[in-house]
Amino acid sequence: MDPPNEVRDIFLSPGDFHFGGPNLRLRTILGSCVSIILWHPVKLLGGMSHYLLPGRNNPNNAQNLEGKYGEEAFYLFLEKIKLTQLPISEFKAKIFGGSDMFSREEENLTLVSNFLNAKLVGQKNINFAKQILSDNSIPIISENTGGSKARKIFFTVWDGEVWLEMQESSK
């Protein structure tokens, strides 16, 4: 499908979320963060999240939904999809990110529990995405997760395509 005459190009920083129609190109750069992309292949609607952690340590402190937490980013998707009056199960998902961004040298220097917890963030983010999508009967049609390199991703809502560039590690 050809791109629309006017394309809105939006860069998502960590914690950002965006959802909209076929004139959007959404892009971001991921390390241990994960992006969930949801796309409706008939209505050409879709969105992208860029979350840092699966959830808050203290969910009772949540005044507003924040895209930096996977759980809350997914609720943002649910709010936007509810407005479309489309069943969420008609959307298709793609997930990206969740890299282990720590070097082997750092691993050998310390076994401090905070470091070990940080090292697991990428995998926890991946696990969360897969679980929440499964719980909501949304099929994952593409994924590129894990590893040790950063990723640049570009999502074009008009055709549902995602372009991926693997970044060289600075390790």
Results as ranks from 00 to 15, higher is better:
Phe17Gly: 06
Ala62Thr: 08
Phe19Val: 07
Asn108Ala: 11
Ser32Met: 08
Asp2Arg: 10
Ser99Pro: 01
Glu168Ser: 07
Phe102Pro: 00
Val34Met: 03
Ser113His: 08
Asn127His: 13
Phe17Trp: 04
Glu71Lys: 13
Cys33Gln: 02
Leu109Thr: 09
Ile95Lys: 00
Pro41Gln: 07
Gly160Phe: 01
Phe115Leu: 13
Gly46Met: 02
Leu38Asp: 01
Ser89Met: 08
Gly70Val: 03
Asn127Glu: 15
Leu12Ile: 02
His18Gln: 09
Glu6Trp: 14
Cys33Phe: 03
Phe11Lys: 04
Asn60Leu: 15
Leu83Val: 13
Pro3Arg: 09
Pro41Glu: 07
Met48Ile: 06
Ser13Asn: 14
Pro54Arg: 01
Gly98Glu: 01
Gly98Leu: 03
Arg151Ser: 10
Asn108Val: 09
Glu66Pro: 10
Phe11Pro: 05
Ala150Lys: 03
Glu79Ile: 11
Asn127Gly: 10
Pro139Asp: 09
Leu116Pro: 05
Ala73Thr: 00
Glu165Gln: 14
Glu66Ser: 12
Leu52Met: 10
Asn125Thr: 11
Ile81Gly: 04
Pro59Asn: 08
Lys92Cys: 14
Thr28Leu: 01
Gly147Cys: 06
Lys171His: 08
Met101Ser: 05
Met101Pro: 00
Asp16Thr: 01
Leu76Ala: 14
Ala129Arg: 00
Gly47Asp: 11
Gly147Ile: 05
Val7Leu: 13
Phe77Gly: 02
Val34Phe: 02
Lys152Pro: 01
Pro87Met: 02
Gly46Leu: 05
Asn61Trp: 12
Glu143Asn: 03
Ser134Cys: 15
Glu71Val: 12
Glu90Phe: 07
Asn57Tyr: 14
Phe154Trp: 12
Gly31Arg: 01
Arg151Asp: 05
Asp135Pro: 11
Lys80Ser: 12
Ile10Pro: 06
Glu106Asn: 14
Gln167Thr: 07
Trp39Pro: 03
Leu111Tyr: 07
Leu26Trp: 02
Lys92Ile: 08
Cys33Lys: 01
Leu45Phe: 03
Asn5Asp: 15
Glu165Asp: 15
Glu79Trp: 15
